[in-house]
Design a protein around this nucleic acid. Structure first.
Lengths: 220, 220
DNA sequence: AAACTATTCAAGAGATTACTTGAATATAAA
DNA sequence: TTTATATTCAAGTAATCTCTTGAATAGTTT
């Protein structure tokens, strides 16, 4: 039956997108690329893969239309091809965070393990802020920050973190927070900041919990 | 570095979701399930797979949290676990339709091949409607239908098609339309209706083109 | 209990995937 | 032209995936 045949061919094509996203290294590359155009070399470096391997993954992403590239001189720069790819990535992430026990486990483990993340309690944070010892970093999107945030916090959405590192003082301690304990924005911010040499920590819970706990807030 | 390790483990988990969606048969099953709870046997039948194979695919979907199931007597009924799974599927579909040439090719080929789909032109449709010969079927979501539709068209979103087949007369010719030439809702409706024995056809283009072409419209 | 049914489990064959290694291209600099 | 650099290509290996087949399990009916 040709209708069925069409359907199967169609789903086989859809599956190519799934396949492109079925490898952790490729997803990591995709996320790096989502932060802005990157060359193969840069991507290989941040992902820890060999250049050849990186190149092969990138070509798979390209063949399914998830990324596009342009050549400039010796280098080839890869970028996300379209906004809908980010939406897809976000949807995948959400499903994973909500339905995979392993993800929740993983987040909980890393967020609570002392030597890797040390969350900072609410009261403790206020003290440190008063003493002028810390920079509080809100990594949520601009709109959410504008709707209310921790007093004195500066806003750098996670996606723009690398470009705005100059707003943070190297010596200063940085405390990052986001939406809540299940939101991994803050974790990622801390991980990235630590890679850059910052003394970064994570706020226990997120803004909703801060607010619900009766702590002071501030609006734009 | 434990931060990097966390990240890689996290992406490896995300990749499990991609892997679950990396097979055409599984995606087809997922779509059937999205239309309502189905037993393994039913799913095996509509997909054309063996029962054992179907069961194995279903378990993969279940292990990644995309579907859930309940047992009732001898049968096991599978359902979509959550709305966010549908969002993910929709996002994947959109990316595939917009970025894979093969999908566009496939749709164009099947949509234009005479013996399988025969699109109906705008002017021709109006004539047939006037003569009371056809039922015009709008397969878009309710909101879109409410915002404007082809005069006299009835609205059955694709996802509810099977449940509302009684609104269509068997003998009557059915002309389906959706958002546009790249939207495959209408094609699927036609394919499914034909499987059920209806004399179904597809409207050339979709509602935006109909409107843009200066044809009459109607609102809720 | 015995027979039946829907589903799952287990093992195996063939295809596909991920990564490595070393060579091949293509562009830029000397 | 020669040399250097960034990327891609190609071949090979180990691991994984899909599907088939036949048996095992769990629940229903007789």
């Amino acid at each position: 039956m040709s209708g069925t045949n069409f359907k199967q061919q169609l789903f086989a094509q859809f599956a190519r997108i799934g396949k492109a996203m079925s490898n952790g290294n490729r997803l990591e590359l995709l996320e790096f690329i989502a932060q802005g155009e990157r060359s193969v070399e840069e991507l290989a470096k941040v992902s820890g893969l060999t250049v050849a391997n990186t190149s092969q993954h990138l070509q798979q992403l390209r063949q399914t239309g998830l990324v596009a590239c342009r050549k400039e001189g010796l280098k080839v720069y890869y970028r996300i091809s379209d906004n809908d790819v980010l939406k897809l990535f976000g949807a995948l992430r959400e499903v994973a965070e909500r339905h995979l026990d392993e993800v929740q486990e993983l987040v909980r483990h890393y967020l609570t393990s002392k030597d890797s993340l040390e969350p900072v309690a609410h009261a403790e944070l206020l003290e440190r802020v008063r003493d002028g010892l810390v920079t509080v970093l809100d990594v949520r999107p601009n709109e959410e920050y504008a709707a209310g945030h921790v007093p004195g916090a500066i806003n750098i959405p996670l996606s723009e973190l690398e470009e705005h590192l100059d707003e943070l003082e190297q010596g200063h301690e940085v405390i990052a927070y986001c939406r809540g304990p299940h939101c991994i924005l803050a974790f990622e911010a801390v991980a990235r900041l630590r890679e850059k040499g910052f003394n970064a920590h994570r706020l226990e819970d997120g803004y909703p919990e801060w607010q619900a706990g009766g702590m002071p807030t501030e609006k734009e």
